[in-house]
């Protein structure tokens, strides 16, 4: 409890990291709900990795051009964000296009994208002598050195995503649940599909850049999967997933700080433990209800 009080204090040295972690924890599950409902869980795995490759490519460009990196410069972060966005959006639109055509093996495409993206990131950084100085930390999610500028960018981007989700939630749900009916009522299904994929892409990019691919994947999917066990309607689904993500981010940071563990893996393991406990609890309750 003392640790939680300490990390939530405005004077806490790593407060920006806590705030960023919590922002990602609250926002990612809201987007993840749509990945789960559209049965695109594998895309949730592949996208953060592809986004990381975008960061690696973007950061390698100045190196290829002979420029010296400045890890503290905002221009480097902007470049990384641009690379992450470009790769995320290109990948999600391409994968979604293949999904719509319904040809070939979807899991095969996503698995290949994931493994190639992972390998490409390693290759790019292994040939870059500046990589170990700071870029690998960035790719892993340098969660302890987030300055006010990065926090502001993350907050503003996620606020934009949440506003869009709130304003167009009705349309996103409609085209996801029943495309044919939406089309007969004059909805531009393709446009709404593209918009939701853009929001997913932006969220993945900003979260990968802030906390890395591992935590992004964890927060995108695990809170949504856990909330799905209990939600009786869509409002409960969104609320449970988001609150679970946000609270786990705070708790995970507290545990990591107290025991000197890395934050990202702590958050993800904690999410996994909560999911396993929730799933087991639900089974036990069902069995008990069945006996009565």
């Amino acid at each position: 409890m003392e640790t939680l009080k300490e990390i939530l204090s405005p004077d806490f040295l790593l407060r920006n990291s806590v705030y960023t972690s919590v922002l990602i924890g609250f926002a990612c599950p809201l987007v993840g709900v749509f990945l789960v409902l559209r049965r695109l869980v594998f895309m949730g795995v592949a996208l953060p990795q592809i986004s990381s490759t975008g960061v690696a490519v973007a950061l390698s460009v100045p190196f290829w051009l002979g420029a010296k990196p400045d890890h503290a410069a905002h221009s480097e972060h902007l470049l990384a964000f641009a690379g992450s966005m470009f790769f995320s959006l290109a990948a999600i639109l391409l994968l979604a296009f293949c999904e719509r055509r319904g040809r070939g093996l979807s899991e095969g495409r996503l698995g290949t994208a994931y493994v190639v993206a992972s390998a490409l990131s390693i290759l790019l950084l292994s040939k870059n002598r500046y990589a170990e100085v700071g870029w690998l930390d960035l790719l892993k999610g340098e969660i302890i050195t987030i300055d006010n500028y990065d926090l502001a960018i993350t907050g503003a981007t996620l606020a934009l995503v949440l506003t869009m989700l709130l304003l167009f939630h009705k349309e996103f749900l409609f085209v996801s649940f029943d495309r044919a009916m939406a089309a007969t009522l004059g909805k531009n299904v393709l446009l709404w599909d593209i918009l939701i994929y853009l929001l997913i892409g932006v969220t993945v990019s900003i979260s990968v850049l802030s906390v890395g691919p591992l935590i992004s994947f964890g927060f995108l999917l695990v809170p949504a999967l856990t909330a799905h066990l209990f939600a009786r309607n869509m409002k409960q689904f969104f609320a449970l997933a988001s609150v679970l993500g946000g609270l786990t981010a705070v708790l995970g940071f507290g545990l990591a700080y107290q025991w000197d563990w890395p934050v990202g893996p702590t958050d993800v393991v904690l999410l996994g433990v909560i999911y396993a406990a929730a799933w087991s609890g639900q089974r036990v309750c069902r069995l008990a209800a069945g006996k009565n």
């Binding site: 789960v36 409902l37 049965r39 304003l167 167009f168 009705k170 349309e171 409609f174 996801s176 649940f177 029943d178 009916m181 939406a182 009522l185 004059g186 909805k187 799905h228 939600a231 009786r232 309607n233 869509m234 409960q236 689904f237």
Partner: peptide, 25 residues
């Protein structure tokens, strides 16, 4: 044809019938 993953109530589904008249936002 509907995916059982969606936690929608009967009312939620029926309400979609009004979405052609109720625009975005």
């Amino acid at each position: 044809q509907f995916d059982p993953l969606y936690p929608l109530t009967g009312f939620d589904v029926a309400l979609m019938g009004t979405f052609g008249r109720v625009g975005p936002m």
